[in-house]
């Protein structure tokens, strides 16, 4: 059964048709990558899934339930979680406190402290735990936010450009982390520009272009698709 299903999802900003009748079905347990040129509507699609934006028309199903009208926090309770494109950490608080806030609804007392320590070492941020999150490097902020997102133990993890600003090694490590989480049962939908990352993790790839699903298939099929190359090239020339 599809874990997430988008049915004919439309979103306008004034005259701008940002997502145009998007249909997308995510299988339980897969790692799915969403790619597309800048401004294709990828982040907007995430915000629709999360309930930050409301679609003009269309429906969103999660685990069989129509969640189109649910508030954001309620969707999180259903098992969604996100890492935003621009790292959304609590800048004025320490890295440790950031994780505490993410974990405290599931753990308490000593168990909470242990869980924070475990997550800090998983993210490789032990040395930075006392630092104000706003002072971390861009990559560290990304990791911290990924840590916050996964600490909810979501059924579906949404990652918006998780490796932006990371070195190739860090990108590869992030890929391994995503695979490990997936092996534990987490379904992942990731927006990525880094093709090495997409190749490393994705089972299926969806290309979004001008708010529409442009192509879908395995990474090899997508890369072999000349039309896809054309839209990226078109953008490079523009």
């Amino acid at each position: 059964m599809a874990l997430l299903e988008l049915r004919r999802l439309n979103k306008h900003f004034g005259g701008l048709h940002v997502t145009n009748s998007v249909n997308l079905a995510l299988e339980t347990g897969e790692i799915h990558c969403l790619i597309g040129p800048n401004g294709a509507g990828k982040s907007t699609l995430f915000r629709l899934i999360l309930g930050e934006y409301h679609p003009g028309s269309g429906d969103i199903y999660f685990a069989g339930e129509n969640i189109t009208a649910l508030k954001s926090f309620a969707r999180i309770h259903r098992g969604l979680s996100v890492k935003f494109q621009v790292p959304g950490v609590f800048k004025g608080l320490s890295a440790r406190q950031n994780l505490e806030i993410a974990l405290q609804s599931r753990h308490r007392g000593v168990a909470l402290e242990q869980e924070i320590d475990r997550l800090l070492s998983f993210l490789g941020l032990e040395a930075e735990q006392g630092q104000t999150a706003g002072n971390l490097s861009h990559g560290q902020k990304q990791w911290l936010e990924i840590g916050m997102a996964i600490s909810l133990k979501p059924r579906l993890l949404l990652l918006d450009e998780p490796t932006a600003g990371m070195s190739p090694e860090e990108t590869h490590l992030t890929g391994e982390m995503v695979q490990r989480l997936n092996a534990e049962g987490m379904t992942v939908l990731a927006i990525e520009h880094d093709m090495a990352f997409v190749r490393q993790v994705a089972r299926r790839v969806t290309v979004l272009h001008l708010g529409q699903v442009f192509a879908q298939g395995s990474i090899d099929q997508i890369i072999a698709d000349e039309r896809v190359a054309a839209i990226y090239l078109g953008q490079a020339h523009a």
Binding site: K71, S72, F73, I76, V82, S105
Partner: peptide
């Protein structure tokens, strides 16, 4: 307390707080 943590989190970034499942 946990409540205070959420209050401060909302000051820092209400969107992130909501996306951790808190009814801001």
């Amino acid at each position: 307390s946990a409540f205070g943590n959420v209050i401060v989190a909302i000051r820092e970034n209400p969107e992130r707080a909501e996306m951790l499942g808190y009814d801001v």
